[in-house]
Simulated assay, not measured.
Amino acid sequence: MSDYRIYHNPGCGTSRNVLALMRHCGIEPEVIEYLKTPPSREELVALLQSMGMSVREILRQRGTPYDELRLGEAHWSDDQLLDFVGQHPILMNRPVVVSPLGTRLCRPSEYVLDLLPPPPAQAFRKEDGEPVLDASGKRVT
């Protein structure tokens, strides 16, 4: 089993870019397609604790039933929000990466570099062509 895990949605460009960056850095993570295999409530709580995030901070609004369920209303408890994520895994923002250096929601995709060994001295571009690493493997800012 890999020391690295990614909670991945192959339909998400950011998630695909993070996975590609991990592989560019020589990491083959355990890929968890969380829409097919959602994390259990306990796993989700552990991920949130590891990231130092609240359940509200991991909720995704766009392309989800967030508005329909009125999850922006303040009366929902964390337990209730966790129930909603369990019922609708698409509500979990992605990608979440677990590594020996920590756990992080990697939005934007460059955040994953903080969790990886130094990248090789090669350029890397996102799938839309945006440069992330220059030819020496340094971040493009």
Rank of each mutant, 00 (worst) to 15 (best):
D3M: 07
Y4R: 08
R5V: 06
I6A: 05
H8K: 05
N9K: 05
P10C: 15
C12A: 13
G13Q: 08
G13R: 14
G13E: 00
S15D: 04
S15L: 05
R16S: 06
V18S: 07
V18R: 08
L19K: 01
L19D: 00
A20S: 14
M22T: 03
C25K: 10
C25E: 01
G26F: 12
E28A: 15
E28L: 12
P29V: 13
E33L: 07
Y34H: 13
Y34F: 15
R41I: 13
R41A: 14
E43V: 15
L44G: 04
V45S: 00
A46T: 15
A46G: 11
L47S: 02
L47W: 02
Q49A: 13
S50R: 08
M51G: 02
G52P: 01
G52M: 11
M53S: 13
M53G: 07
R56C: 10
E57V: 02
I58A: 02
L59Y: 04
R60Q: 12
R62A: 14
R62G: 09
G63V: 10
T64C: 10
E68T: 14
L69G: 01
R70D: 00
L71T: 05
A74N: 04
W76L: 03
Q80W: 09
L81M: 04
L81T: 04
L81K: 09
L82G: 04
L82I: 08
G86K: 12
H88R: 08
H88F: 13
L91W: 02
R94P: 00
V97E: 03
V98M: 06
R104S: 13
C106W: 03
P108G: 13
S109G: 07
Y111M: 11
V112Q: 05
V112Y: 02
L113H: 04
L115V: 12
L115F: 09
P117F: 11
P120E: 10
P120S: 07
A121S: 12
A121D: 07
Q122Y: 07
F124H: 00
R125C: 14
D128G: 13
E130L: 11
D134P: 03
R139E: 12
